[in-house]
Amino acid sequence: MPAFLDISRLTIAFPRSPVPVLSDVELAIEKGEFVAVIGHSGCGKSTMLNVVAGLLEPTLGGVVLDGREISGPGPDRAVVFQNHSLLPWLTCYENIKLAVDQTLRGSMSRKERHEWILHNLALVRMTHAKDKRPHEISGGMKQRIGIGRALAMKPKVLLMDEPFGALDALTRAHLQDQVMQIHAELGMTTMMITHDVDEAVLLSDRIVMLTNGPNAHVGEILHVDLPRPRDRLALANDPRFINARAAVLEFLHARHANPALEAA
C-alpha cells in the first residue's frame, strides 16, 4: 500500500545542465500529515514543489497522489504561492470565487458555492475585506486570501511555497498560528517549502532536509513529536523544541553548509 502522497525516484534536470537539480528524491507523506521541506536556497525545494503541483515535468521518477500518478496541474494539489499571486483586478471574494467556480462547479450549486466562499473567507479571517482589491490590503492579508483560495478548492494536498517568506516577523508568526489552527480544524495534508527553521519545527510533523544542490536529495528526515496544539510561547523553552531546532540547524550549517557562503 503506497503512501497518500508518494514521491519516488524523482529526478529533475533542466536542459543545458549536465547535473540534475534534484536526484532520486524519495518522500512518502501520509494523509493529514504536515511536512516541511527545508534546505539552502538553490537546493531545488521549490522545484520539487512545482513538480508535485504539476507545473513542472519530472525528468525521471514520479509522484503518486491517492493512488493516481499526477500529470499536469490540478485543483487536487492547491498551491499557496510565495508572492500570493492574487489577480489584482478581482476583489478578495472574486479571487476565491474564480477558483471555486472553476473547480467545484460540478458538485455545488451557485448558492452553495457562495456560502463556501464566505466560509473560507471566515476561515482565514478575511470576511471584513471581501470586497477589497489586493492592492488595498497588507501583504499578510493577501497571503491569507491566497491560503483561503487554496483551501476553498478542497485539495487533497495543500502545497505551500515559502508562504510567509515575504512577510515581516510579527505577521509571519501570526499567520503561522492561523495555519496551525486551520490544520487542527481541517487536518489537510500539507507540504510546505520553507527556509525558516523555527517555522518548520513549529508547524510540521516531519521536517525533510535537502542536501545542497545541484544533485540534491533527501539528506535526513526529522520527526517532530511535539504535542498539538502547539503554542510558540510555551515551546520556546521546551527541550524537545530546542533539540529539534538544534538538529535542523546542525544539518543545515554544520554538515551541509551553504556552499555559496563557504566560498565567500
Partner: peptide
C-alpha cells in the same frame, strides 16, 4: 504567477483568455 494560478484551477481556452489574459 497568473498563468500558474490558471493552470492549478485548470482554467483554459476562452475562459482563461477572458478572465486572465484580457484583464492582465
Amino acid at each position: 504567477d497568473y498563468r500558474n494560478v490558471a493552470a492549478v484551477i485548470r482554467l483554459r481556452g476562452p475562459a482563461y483568455f477572458l478572465k486572465v489574459v484580457l484583464p492582465a
